[in-house]
């Protein structure tokens, strides 16, 4: 991402990294998480869960910035993120 103004503490900032957890069996395939993931991490998969819905899958999981929006929007408590601090990248990179 390009910045039109560089924060003074840019060398200290890190891009958060999130690990996605998808509880496929709870999913009802509404697509809220797919639609509103700001980083386009998710898409509805081809696979079915036992209720016949297509749960989401992470197509580029490394892009997840642990914003939690999928977790907040999911009406079925079927997806959540966990922050992985070890993997955080420098913003400056």
């Amino acid at each position: 991402m390009e910045y039109w103004r560089t924060p003074l503490d840019i060398d200290k900032l890190k891009i958060p990294r999130g690990e996605l957890h998808i509880i496929k069996e709870r999913c009802k395939g509404c697509g809220f998480c797919v639609e509103y993931c700001p980083k386009g991490v998710l898409k509805l998969s081809e696979e079915f869960n036992s209720k016949g819905y297509h749960p989401p899958e992470a197509i580029n999981p490394d892009e997840c910035v642990n914003c939690d929006l999928c977790e907040m929007l999911c009406p079925d408590f079927a997806i959540y993120c966990v922050r992985i601090e070890a993997d955080e990248k420098e913003v400056a990179n």
Binding site: G31, F32, E71, M72, C74, P75, D76, F77
Partner: peptide, 9 residues
């Protein structure tokens, strides 16, 4: 696609 679960969250 009901929104109720989201409001519960």
């Amino acid at each position: 696609t009901c929104g109720l679960g989201t409001t519960v969250t």
